[in-house]
């Protein structure tokens, strides 16, 4: 009886020790993820909805996980040039990248708004039908009719107007900079074939999509 009792105590102590040694790293990893998320949200908006700083910071909320992971790698590999995000992304471990990306994909705040509204009817048409005479395909063909994207194709719905105009007008100065061809090449001809006012119209339209 007493030996059974002491045996139980020993087992309990062993279980407790094991549980402790497991739960400590798990807890601190969760703490690390939360601290990193807070850091991302200082710039990308407290709900990941995007933010207008000196530079526009894109919406990450509801973004495709594969797209987020691919872009974070692109910053590190200098396929995509941005000094701020290159520094940020360098400090992320692969498991942190997937933890952050999956968190952002599941957020769903309202679009931040703030785009000029007058051009968005023309933008709707470009989004759904493209500009056949200018060799611009319908955006919905790849980005989805709701603009939510899939896998490596990004969500555009609710994205910041100024950010999209900046990306589309400067596409080949910023993206696809490595020696090998990457996913940015799929989008390059479409970005080139639109005029500034067509870009503004379609960006205004998609920025309002929920």
């Amino acid at each position: 009886m007493s030996s059974f009792g002491s045996c139980l105590t020993m087992i309990r102590a062993a279980i407790l020790a094991a549980a402790l040694s497991m739960s400590l790293p798990v807890a601190s990893r969760a703490g690390e993820l939360q601290a990193k998320l807070d850091y991302c949200k200082t710039c990308h908006g407290l709900s990941g909805q995007g933010y207008r700083g000196y530079f526009p910071m894109p919406r990450l909320a509801g973004q495709q996980q594969e797209y987020l992971e691919n872009q974070l790698r692109a910053f590190v590999e200098r396929r995509r040039i941005n000094p701020i995000m290159a520094n940020v992304a360098h400090a992320l471990s692969p498991s942190m990248v997937s933890g952050l990306s999956s968190h952002f994909q599941h957020l769903n705040p309202k679009p931040i708004g703030g785009a000029p509204s007058h051009s968005s009817p023309a933008g709707r048409q470009i989004f759904n039908e493209g500009l056949p005479e200018a060799n611009v395909p319908a955006c919905s063909a790849c980005h989805g009719s709701d603009g939510h994207g899939q896998n490596e194709i990004p969500r555009l719905a609710g994205q910041l107007y100024e950010y999209m105009v900046g990306q589309l007008t400067g596409w080949s100065k910023v993206r696809g900079q490595g020696t090998s061809v990457d996913t940015s090449a799929v989008m390059a001809p479409t970005a080139h074939n639109m005029s500034r006012s067509q870009i503004e119209a379609v960006a205004a339209y998609v920025s309002t999509l929920p």
Partner: peptide, 24 residues
């Protein structure tokens, strides 16, 4: 910033010469 310590680059919001913009 100091990315390893989760310190954000002030530059991204306050601008290259700390001049601010809009309500920043």
């Amino acid at each position: 910033g100091i990315p390893d310590a989760n310190i954000a680059a002030c530059y991204a919001c306050h601008g290259p010469n700390a001049e601010g913009i809009r309500d920043i």
